[in-house]
Design a protein around this nucleic acid. Structure first.
Length: 764
DNA sequence: CTTGCACAGCAAGGCGCTGA
DNA sequence: TCAGCGCCTTGCTGTGCAAG
C-alpha cells in the first residue's frame, strides 16, 4: 500500500478529480456515503500499520482514497479532505525529507519537464517501499520508512536481517544520508507480463510485522538519492557501488531527450528485471542542499509511470439492452477512464443473473482491465455505495424468440435489435441500414411490424428525420433487393434459431414446405436436436409468426424461381460449401478461386454457359428480365428515363452488369485496387450490344460507365442508356475482376464476359 | 453429466463516405 | 471542409444446446 506516496498521488489525481462529476445525492446521503468510506479507509490503515497486512491492493486503496476526496470536495467544500492516517507515536524524523517525485502524464510532459535541464539520468522506478538510511561515521544507525516524508517509522532492528543493507560503509564522512527503495528481489520479472505481483505490499508487510520473517532475506535495496553526495552522477554512482549499493550503477542511464527516456521505459517494461517497477524516474542534479528538501517540492526528479494494468472507475448508470432473441444484456455506463490508449465508457457484463451476482449499481466503484486487443473487462467491484437502488431489468418472460415482432413502446429495444439483425450481411444484406437508420424509421412511425419496410415508398422513407431523399432512394432500392433473397435468409430474418449449418442445408424454398415440417423433419438437419426441433415447431405455430409469414407470402417472398432466375456467388466459403443445392456448375475459375458460383433453384445450365467466360469467377446474379425491382424503379422515374432509350439495347438485347468487389477490405487483391472508388461500390457494366445478336461470350467487351452505391445493385436503364448501343466496338480490358456480376440470362442478350478488370471507370 | 461448439452481444477504433 | 455515420475488424464473455 503506497500510503507513503499519498502526497504524490494527490497531485496525480488532481486532474481526474477535476473532471469527475459530483453524485446527485441529498446532503444526508452524501454524509452517509462519506462516513462509510472514511471508516473503511481508516480500518484498512489500522490493519496495515498495526498488522502489516494489506486487505486491498494499493491501486484499489488509492482509487478509493481519491474517490472519497472527490466526494468531500463536492459536499463539504472548504474542509480538509481525508488523508491517510499515519501512526502518530511512531514517527522518527528524517534527516533529509523525502520530496516525492513529480508525475508526468505522457511523452509531451516529459519533453516539457526536460527542457532547460542538463546531465539527466533515467532509472527504473522500483516498486517498493521508500526508506531513508542514516550512516554515522560509517555505521548504520537508522532505517526510517518514508511515512509522510518528514517522519516515518524506525526500522533499524529489521535492517540487521536484510543482507542487502550494509551495516557499515567505508567513509570519512561523519554522516551519510541515503534514500532508496526496499523491494522484493525477483528473478526475471517482466513488468509487462507479470505486473506488480503485489511485491511492494509483501515487503511493506514484512517490514511492519513485529517478528522477523523470512521475506527480509529476499529484500533488496535500490538507492535513488544521496542528498548531499557528489554533484556528478557518475561519481555518486561509483561511490555507492563501492559501499555495496551497486544496483543504482547498473540501472542508471544518461539521457538527453524524451525519445531516449521513452526507449528505456519501453525496454525496462518488457525486459527481465530483478524487481517490479511501475515506471521510470528521470533525475537531474538537485538544486537544493539536503537540509532544504521539503515534501512535495522535489523539482529535480520526475516519474513517468506505466499505464496500470487495472484501472478504476465509477459506475454512472446500469442499462439493459434487449437483443433480437430477447436476451437481456447488462451494460454499465462508466465515468470515462483511460486504459492504455483506450477510453472506456461502457462495459458489458453479460446476463442479468451475473449482474445480480456482482451486485453493482450506479455510484459503485469498479476495476477494469483490457482483455485481448482492448476489450474492457470488469474485474471486481471495489466499493459499493450505502444506499442500494436497483434498476428494474426488463422482465425476461416478456422477451423471447417470438416476442416483439410488432413495435410497441415496451418492445422498442428488441424490435430495433431485430431490425438491425436482419439488415446484416449474412441475413438480408440491406446496404445502408444500420441501427441508427432503423431508429429513424421507427421514430418516424413508419414501421409497424418486422417487415413493414417492404411496402414503404421512397417518399415515406425520406419523411423520416435525418434521411435525405437521395439516401431514401438508395434505401428503398436496398429494400427492393431483399425480395430476391432466398427463403433461408428470410428465415434468419424472422429470428428462427436455426444453426448456420442447418440453415445452409435446408432444402425448402417456400414457406409451405417449412410450415409443414414436423419435429422429426427438423431433426434431420445438422445441429438440430430434439430440444431445438420442438422449439422450432412451437415457434412456427405462434400466431405472430404465422401472421408475418402470411405477409411475406402475400408480398411474393421469396420470389418464385420463374421470376428471378439468378445465381449468387459469394466468397463466404462456408456458406457455399454447405449449400444444399449446389448445382455443381461452377464457373470456370481462373485466377482467384475464392468466389464461388451457386445456383438457385430453377436456374438452367444454358443460362450459365454464356457467362462461363474465361476469368469470370465472380458472384453472378442473372435476371431473366429486368422487369422486377429494376422495372419498378424505372416505372417510378418514367419521365426521367423517357426519350433516352432510342439507341439503347433495351432490356432484351443488351447486357448490363454490376460489378462489385466483394473483397472490400482485401487490399492485397490488386486487381480491385486499380479501380478508383471501387471499395464498397458496385459498377455498372455496359456490355456493348452485338447487333447481330451474338450470344457467345466475347472477351473484353465492356466498359465501366459509373460506380454505383451498394444499394444500387440493380441495373438501371438510365445507366445503360447513357452509353447505348451505338458504341459496340471492342476495347480490351484483360485482367480479372473478381466481383459480383449482374447480368440478364444470356438467352436474351449478347455475350457477357467479365474477363477484364474494370479500370475504365467513368464517374457519372 | 461433461465437454465442446456456436452464437449473441459487446467494446474500441480505423477507414472512408455522406451530407450539411 | 468536417462532423457524423456506416461498415468492418478483433476478440472476449456468457449462454445454451448438441453430442459424447
Amino acid at each position: 500500500m503506497k500510503r507513503w506516496l499519498w502526497l504524490g498521488l494527490c497531485l496525480l489525481n488532481a486532474e481526474s478529480r477535476g473532471k469527475a462529476l459530483c453524485p446527485v445525492w441529498s446532503p444526508v446521503r452524501a454524509q452517509q456515503e462519506i462516513t462509510r468510506l472514511q471508516e473503511q479507509l481508516r480500518h484498512w490503515d489500522n490493519v496495515y500499520y498495526q498488522q502489516g497486512a494489506s486487505p486491498v491492493s494499493d491501486d484499489d486503496y488509492d482509487s478509493l482514497l481519491s474517490r472519497l476526496q472527490q466526494w468531500q470536495r463536492c459536499f463539504v467544500p472548504g474542509e480538509p479532505v481525508h488523508e491517510t492516517a499515519l501512526p502518530a507515536s511512531r514517527g522518527a524524523p528524517h534527516p533529509v525529507a523525502h520530496t516525492g517525485v513529480r508525475k508526468l502524464r505522457d511523452r509531451l510532459a516529459v519533453a516539457y519537464w526536460m527542457q532547460h535541464k542538463s546531465a539527466l539520468w533515467v532509472q527504473p522506478k522500483v516498486d517498493g517501499v521508500a526508506v531513508t538510511l542514516l550512516y554515522r561515521h560509517g555505521r548504520l544507525t537508522s532505517l526510517i520508512s518514508r511515512g509522510d516524508g518528514v517522519r516515518g517509522e524506525e526500522w533499524r532492528d529489521k535492517a540487521a536481517h536484510i543482507p542487502a543493507i550494509p551495516q557499515r560503509i567505508e567513509t570519512s564522512l561523519a554522516e551519510v544520508v541515503l534514500q532508496g527503495e526496499l523491494f522484493l528481489q525477483m528473478t526475471g520479472h517482466q513488468q509487462a507480463r507479470d505486473g506488480g505481483a503485489n511485491a511492494r505490499a509483501q515487503v511493506a508487510g514484512a517490514m511492519m510485522r513485529r517478528e522477523i520473517g523470512p521475506l527480509l532475506k529476499r529484500t533488496g535495496l535500490f538507492i535513488w538519492a544521496w542528498p548531499d553526495g557528489p554533484p556528478e552522477m557518475t561519481e555518486k554512482l561509483t561511490q555507492l557501488s563501492r559501499w555495496g549499493f551497486d544496483l543504482a550503477r547498473q540501472w542508471s542511464q544518461p539521457v538527453s531527450d524524451e525519445e531516449q527516456v521513452a526507449a528505456w521505459r519501453e525496454r525496462w517494461f518488457r525486459a527481465a528485471l530483478p524487481f517490479a517497477t511501475d515506471g521510470v524516474v528521470i533525475h537531474a542534479a538537485p538544486s537544493a542542499a539536503g537540509r532544504d528538501w521539503q515534501p512535495g517540492q522535489g523539482s529535480w526528479s520526475a516519474a513517468w509511470k506505466y499505464q496500470p494494468a487495472e484501472v478504476s472507475s465509477e459506475v454512472r448508470a446500469v442499462t439493459f439492452s434487449v437483443g433480437r432473441t430477447g436476451k437481456v444484456a447488462v451494460v454499465l455506463n462508466l465515468q470515462p477512464v483511460q486504459a492504455e490508449d483506450k477510453t472506456i465508457r461502457r462495459i458489458s457484463i453479460g446476463s442479468v443473473a451475473r449482474w445480480r451476482a456482482l451486485d453493482v449499481i450506479a455510484g459503485d466503484q469498479v476495476t477494469l482491465t483490457l482483455a485481448g486487443l482492448g476489450i474492457p473487462r470488469l474485474e471486481r467491484v471495489i466499493w459499493r455505495v450505502a444506499e442500494r437502488h436497483y434498476p428494474e431489468p426488463p422482465a425476461s418472460d416478456d422477451f423471447h424468440a417470438t416476442s416483439c415482432l410488432h413495435i410497441t413502446p415496451a418492445c422498442r429495444a428488441q424490435f430495433l435489435s431485430r431490425l438491425s439483425g436482419l439488415s446484416q450481411k449474412t441475413v438480408l444484406d440491406i446496404a445502408g441500414m444500420q441501427r441508427s437508420s432503423w431508429q429513424r424509421l421507427v421514430q418516424h412511425g413508419a414501421l409497424t411490424h418486422l417487415f413493414s419496410w417492404l411496402t414503404l415508398t421512397p417518399e415515406q422513407i425520406a419523411a423520416a428525420e435525418g434521411i435525405s431523399p437521395a439516401r431514401a432512394q438508395r434505401i428503398w432500392l436496398s429494400f427492393r433487393l431483399t425480395r430476391q433473397q432466398p427463403l433461408r435468409r428470410w428465415i434468419a430474418a424472422l429470428g428462427l434459431p436455426l444453426p448456420r449449418q442447418a440453415l445452409a442445408s435446408l432444402p425448402d424454398t417456400q414457406w409451405e414446405a417449412l410450415l409443414a415440417r414436423t419435429g422429426a423433419d427438423w431433426q434431420q438437419l445438422p445441429g438440430v436436436g430434439d430440444v431445438l426441433a420442438q422449439r422450432l415447431v412451437t415457434m412456427l405455430q405462434t400466431p405472430q409468426l404465422r401472421e408475418l409469414i402470411a405477409f411475406l407470402q402475400q408480398q411474393g417472398i421469396p420470389a418464385a424461381p420463374s421470376v428471378f432466375r439468378m445465381g449468387i456467388v459469394e466468397d463466404r466459403q462456408a456458406e457455399t460449401e454447405t449449400q444444399g443445392e449446389q448445382a455443381g456448375s461452377k464457373t470456370e475459375q481462373q485466377g482467384d478461386n475464392d468466389h464461388r458460383f451457386m445456383r438457385q433453384r430453377g436456374f438452367q445450365q444454358q443460362d450459365i454457359d454464356p457467362a462461363r467466360c474465361e476469368g469470370d469467377t465472380g458472384i453472378q446474379l442473372f435476371l431473366e428480365h429486368q422487369r422486377n425491382a429494376v422495372a419498378e424503379h424505372i416505372a417510378q422515374h418514367a419521365a426521367k428515363y423517357a426519350g433516352d432509350d432510342r439507341s439503347n439495347c433495351g432490356d432484351d438485347r443488351c447486357v448490363a452488369g454490376i460489378q462489385r468487389d466483394l473483397r472490400t477490405n482485401n487490399r492485397e487483391h490488386h486487381q480491385a485496387q486499380r479501380i478508383k472508388y471501387q471499395k464498397h461500390f458496385a459498377q455498372v457494366i455496359h456490355q456493348r450490344c452485338n447487333k447481330s445478336g451474338d450470344h457467345r461470350c466475347r472477351r473484353n467487351n465492356h466498359d465501366v460507365l459509373r460506380m454505383l452505391y451498394p444499394a444500387e445493385r440493380v441495373v438501371t436503364q438510365q445507366n445503360i442508356a447513357h452509353r447505348a448501343a451505338s458504341d459496340c466496338g471492342d476495347r480490351s480490358d484483360d485482367n480479372n475482376a473478381k466481383q459480383i456480376h449482374f447480368a440478364p440470362a444470356c438467352s436474351q442478350c449478347a455475350g457477357h464476359r467479365f474477363s477484364g478488370n474494370a479500370d475504365k471507370v467513368e464517374n457519372s
